[in-house]
């Protein structure tokens, strides 16, 4: 689905379905330098199981135009602008990596718009290493290599994609290579500069799910601990043998965690 926000053409994947007013809505927010296709399986499942799905491309990403937003707070406000433009009162918000920070901030800044939030591959701070940031700043291909290598678990670096015939490393790399110059840097800098996450976490009153991966080198489980303690009633799921890019490495396990969380009662 294409729509216009701030005079820019924006793309939102809906599972090839139109949004129905009588259904609950789930917003999916991708990570740095990526786009809606990272949610391929999970978003498609939800779209065919009774939810409105909005797997968005943030400005400047995927098929959305405009300059990339430069801080997490603006991204959170932009998500609400998107809901406004579609007359959607409330939604569950699910985010991965940078998207998890946007999700958290959306929940804190706009509590009346968010029914529950899921933070996948998340930590606070979400610190970006200096070599990665520098490489991204100069649009150096090494930035894509670092994310691809650090992003996948040990075994996944040799493959074993759950989707038959797909080579995970190649797909991650190609997706990052498609990002427009400067966009990855803008995203990574926004992650690095986001300092108020723990305060935001304390303000969240809706149910929160955290999905983490044991082999995550980008948002290690240990670095998520303070975040977990700042959340009133966290539901946590930890995936074994899995790296940061869990949506591709363990799509079923991620979906199962989301499904039971999103289908549960008010708490």
């Amino acid at each position: 689905m294409k729509l216009t926000i701030n005079n820019e053409s924006i793309y939102v994947y809906t599972g090839a379905k139109s949004l129905a007013p009588d259904r609950d809505t789930i917003v999916f927010i991708h990570g740095a330098g990526l786009d809606h296709t990272v949610w391929l399986l999970q978003s498609r499942y939800c779209a065919h199981h009774g939810w409105n799905v909005m797997a968005l491309d943030l400005p400047g990403h995927g098929r959305s135009n405009g300059p990339a937003l430069t801080d997490i707070e603006s991204m959170a406000d932009w998500v609400v602008q998107l809901l406004d433009s579609l007359d959607i009162e409330q939604a569950a918000v699910v985010g991965h990596s940078m998207g998890s920070l946007v999700t958290l901030e959306t929940g804190a800044r706009h509590p009346q718009r968010v029914t529950r939030i899921a933070l996948l591959g998340t930590s606070l701070p979400l610190a970006v290493s200096e070599p990665l940031l520098t490489a991204a700043q100069t649009n150096d291909h090494h930035a894509f290599d670092m994310i691809t290598l650090w992003g996948h678990g040990h075994a996944a670096r040799l493959g074993g994609h759950p989707v038959p015939g797909m080579w995970m490393i190649g797909n991650t790399l190609r997706l990052l290579e498609r990002s427009r110059p400067g966009v990855l840097y803008a995203d990574l800098r926004a992650c690095n500069q986001y300092q108020t996450g723990l305060d935001s976490a304390q303000q969240i009153s809706c149910p929160v799910l955290l999905v983490m991966a044991r082999q995550d080198r980008m948002t290690p489980v240990a670095v998520a601990e303070e975040l977990i303690h700042s959340i009133r009633n966290p539901h946590t799921v930890i995936l074994d043998d899995c790296g940061h890019l869990m949506l591709a490495e363990q799509p079923d396990q991620v979906l199962d965690a989301l499904k039971s969380f999103l289908s549960a009662g008010p708490n």
């Binding site: 493959g159 074993g160 994609h161 038959p164 015939g165 797909m166 080579w167 490393i169 190649g170 797909n171 190609r174």
Partner: peptide, 21 residues
């Protein structure tokens, strides 16, 4: 699709530097 074939497909995609086969 078949699990044995999937290994071969992934292997050639990896060797060629593609996304899938």
């Amino acid at each position: 699709s078949n699990p044995t074939n999937a290994v071969l497909e992934e292997r050639i995609a990896a060797l060629e530097g593609g996304v899938g086969a």
